[in-house]
Computed example of a mutant assay.
Amino acid sequence: MDQHINEQANIDRIWEIIEKARVCMMATHFSEGMRVRPMEALPERDENVIYFLTDKRGLKDDEVEIRPEVYLTFVYPNENVYLALTGEAFVSRDPECARALWDRQQDGWLSGPDDPNLMAIRVELWRAEMWDGPLNCAVADFQFAKARLFGIKANLGETDKVTVELF
């Protein structure tokens, strides 16, 4: 029972970081390797998925359709948390899906929810790895400076690393 409670707490923490960070780096595969780009996450915790609205002229849809495995990395420096997610991506060219996900934050990227180049990518999550550090950035900076000054190892406190299967 205790392990189940810890696992649920880790899952809740993972979704909390996704929701707080909002922007991640999405890595997709292409013929010459991997391509990484920043993307705004639209998480749906109840579905265990993250949606992304994007411009279909950016080649992400072609890359996802050839090899759907993607990697997402979130950094939330306010709490010194790093999150790496693996999942399978699916392209939706359904304008209704994109319209349903649209909010005013996307106005800077596309002309609106009826933009003909708007599409959605749905990522079904498989695995999460999270490094959750106890220190804020100011304390970490102080510890690194002290370590350099005195030639010692930085004391960053304990960092919890968890791996969670999400499917």
Rank of each mutant, 00 (worst) to 15 (best):
Q3W: 06
W126I: 07
F30T: 04
I5L: 12
N10E: 10
T159N: 06
P116V: 04
S92I: 08
P68E: 03
N136Y: 02
L149Y: 09
M25D: 01
R57A: 01
M39R: 02
W126V: 08
R13E: 01
M39T: 04
L72F: 00
T28R: 03
T73G: 08
A154L: 00
W102L: 13
E88D: 07
N10T: 04
I5P: 08
M26P: 08
V36M: 10
G112K: 05
D103T: 03
E16I: 04
W15E: 04
E32I: 11
T28A: 07
E124C: 12
D107P: 04
R122P: 09
E96F: 11
G87V: 00
K153L: 13
A89E: 07
E44F: 10
L135G: 04
C97R: 10
W102P: 15
I66H: 11
H29T: 12
R93G: 11
E19I: 02
E16R: 03
E40G: 13
I14A: 03
L59N: 05
M1V: 11
P134N: 07
A140I: 15
T54C: 13
V23C: 06
F30C: 08
I152G: 10
D46E: 15
N80E: 05
M119N: 12
R67P: 06
D114R: 13
V36C: 15
I17F: 00
W126R: 06
V23G: 07
Q3N: 12
E63K: 04
I152L: 11
Y82A: 14
Y82Q: 09
D107C: 10
C97M: 10
E69F: 11
M34P: 00
A100Y: 01
P43G: 07
